[in-house]
Amino acid sequence: MSWKKFTYRAILFLIPIVILVIGVEVLVRNIPNSISVSGEQLEEDNSSIKFLVLGSSQNKRAINPEFLTSNTLTVAGTRQGHKTDFYLLKDLHKHLPNLKRVFVGVTARHFESPPNGKNFWKYRSHLVYYNVNAFERPVYFKDKFIFLGNPNFYSDQLEDYYIKNKKLTYNKFGFQLTGLNDRFAKFHHNEEEILKTFNSGNYPSLNRNFLDLSSKWFHKILEYCQENNIQVSLTKTPTFKNYNPLLDRDVLKRRDSIVDAALTTYPNIGLFDEEENTLYKANHFINENHLNPKGAELFTKRLEQFLKESTFSQN
């Protein structure tokens, strides 16, 4: 057999795989998720959006824009670091002419968790749904295939959505309402049971070496907001009562010193601190440091109140 015939046969062999990958990509894009719903909101309402929520899963789970009076876009995401936040802010700002305020998460883990790498798989979704290039490099053809960014993750999603018929629901702001991995519900929100099972191993380990890098990107966000006259609300989201005491106190101190310094350096910042607020009970959480929709409602309403009462205007 000549090499040409061999190549021809190899191509024939690969055709079903290419069709399969394209088909799977189409199916994946049909599954609603918080990024795709926010993407729709961005496309439809971009000129009326006044608030932007950045940060990691804690912010994503804590702020439900439904309870804010100003139109709010949420682009917070699981394990999303300040670097990604910065790129999202910078690129999205071009499409948000009336952006007045940004919510930036400053949870205890935020500064010492590994930053998102250059090829972070969620960047593909940011590119497709928000038109944001966070790759720190030119966009390649492959970047437009969401499925190929993390086939394992999306295969599970496909299975859940199309085969097991597990359909998650989101409100029009991309806030997830059902299908949360609610660990506390398994204990019927019984505090004693929950306290018995606390396991710090459930959370990825922290590394102090990331502190400088994270705080660099944190400051870049704050500087950008200052230059563009955007108000900043730093958010310390609630934690269940056993969480902070079990966390390394030095981690908290280091985070607080960065936040305190930022509050004195930049004039357009406020801090909304609910981290150790005892108002939040077990039935407000899905786990030690993430709120459930009920908790999010309480947090967001209190945030709204905070904004009304704070010295800088809500616009």
Binding site: L20, G149, N150, P151, N152, S155
Partner: peptide, 19 residues
């Protein structure tokens, strides 16, 4: 054989995590 190759390729795609 081809069925076997497709199964392997399917597993590579299905169970491949981020690179």
């Amino acid at each position: 054989r081809w069925a076997g190759y497709y199964v392997l390729i399917f597993m590579i795609i299905r169970y491949g995590g981020p690179q």
